[in-house]
Design a protein around this nucleic acid. Structure first.
Lengths: 253, 253
DNA sequence: CCAAAAGTGTTATAAGTACACCCATGA
DNA sequence: TCATGGGTGTACTTATAACACTTTTGG
């Protein structure tokens, strides 16, 4: 809190000061809400904290921005480190928002840029050099998290739920070849509501480029029933009209 | 760029280090894309830079976070300073995203949290203590802006355009009492497309709580034609079903 | 056989689109 | 009177929701 006056005078017109060390430094980090589907249920990747504050509590993975790295690059690097995935380049990674409340870390001023990702077929977390322990946790069993990570996680789910309505994002959560039943499970798990199977099928197939059939292939979804045809993700970005959630509730205000 | 190794080791499990000055400091700022409607056209509030870099170029208003201030609070403070508005508390202010590319400011590492706001009845900018010159500029005439502010401005318009579809945000851009023609102009200006007047009217009136009639009142919209009934913003946050843009194009991918 | 999941069909209602038409006002 | 914007009506098309029904597998 060294010189608030100078900060205000340096505003707008001469917006950035030249003395880099004139202010209390801000730490800038990224936090990741990495979601996936396991056995039809939404899961989130959590790491266990080894130190104070919040020692022993679970937290979202994350870390500092390196000096020459954008927040997006830092998030992608962290994602690769935590999941052990080799090719993290093509994965869907979306900036949620930035959390900057002064008291969110008791030790110092930390501004965190939050991202969310939706992964298919989750590999076990590496629990590598960084994290003491890392694990996939069912979304509903993610107890109180460290810092404001519970809020970030809830925001992530809201964002993903909203994007399922007007984008083809759901395929990001499926293996390369998937059945329409598996695709429907993504929607049902994220929205927390069952969908009408026939109508869902028609809606998806009626959207050009949402999915593409894999000729001849078939697979059983739950070990039972008729084998289902397989599809691959198509090139389309957004269905039109969108695939709206059943309940009028749950929409953002 | 003092100690990258430590930054990585301090990751995840001991996520935030204790030595506040161990790293190259990041400056954290807010940038504001303040939009409004003047004479049926979308305008944005710009300030003229007096110093290098980008001296003489127009830029979005913005400034540093104070040491004990969240990004939201800083944005609201800047908004009040730049517009001279007395009560900025109830205005719609939305976090867009955070811009963190290493080279976005040539002098030092600046991470900027961008916000957008939609104002009614724009007061002339104060051009107060901060800004050399500030003015409302038609969106289409906002030439090349300083830094990456052109990108931020485009993102702001995209966000506002999307939010008009599934929220009742448009009333934020109208005076306290407005005609349905004025409300429709908001959509047409932001979306850049004409709307069918009768259908728009029905859609708005059919949404409970979107607008409330002001009994007996009437006003001419463009100095011509039949006087139109006046409405006030209602309590509803979101129309259901949403008010979708006409063209399938322009949707985010 | 039954249970489970895929896949097809049908029907009723709701919503969106594209107009035609009349009304009230200022110039 | 004409141009302009407000307001109402209506026919057509599309989308949604809620089902019933058949098919193909495993147990």
């Amino acid at each position: 809190m060294r010189d608030e006056t100078r900060a205000r005078e340096a505003d707008a017109c001469d917006r950035y000061v030249y003395d880099k060390y004139a202010y209390e430094p801000f730490a800038v980090t990224v936090d990741l809400a990495v979601l996936t589907l396991r056995a039809g249920a939404l899961h989130v990747l959590l790491v266990e904290r080894g130190q104070q504050p919040y020692a022993g509590r679970w937290a979202l993975p994350g870390g500092f921005l390196l000096p020459e790295e954008s927040a997006e690059a830092a998030a992608r690097r962290e994602l690769a480190e935590e999941t052990g995935l080799a090719d993290v380049g093509g994965l869907h990674l979306e900036q949620l928002r930035t959390y900057s409340e002064p008291g969110r870390d008791p030790r110092m001023r930390v501004v965190s840029v939050a991202f969310t990702a939706l992964l298919p077929d989750p590999p076990e977390p590496t629990a590598g050099s960084d994290a003491a322990r890392a694990r996939w946790t069912p979304y509903d069993e993610a107890g109180p998290l460290a810092f404001d990570h519970g809020l970030i996680l809830a925001d992530a789910r809201d964002r993903i739920a909203a994007k399922l309505e007007y984008t083809c994002l759901a395929t990001a959560c499926c293996p390369p070849e998937f059945t329409l039943g598996e695709l429907r499970q993504v929607y049902e798990a994220v929205w927390g509501t069952p969908l009408d199977r026939p109508n869902f099928r028609r809606k998806v197939l009626a959207t050009p480029g949402f999915v593409e059939p894999v000729p001849g292939a078939a697979r059983l979804t739950g070990g039972r029933g008729k084998p289902a045809a397989l599809y691959r993700a198509g090139p389309a970005g957004a269905p039109h009209p969108p695939l709206l959630r059943p309940s009028p509730e749950g929409r953002l205000a």
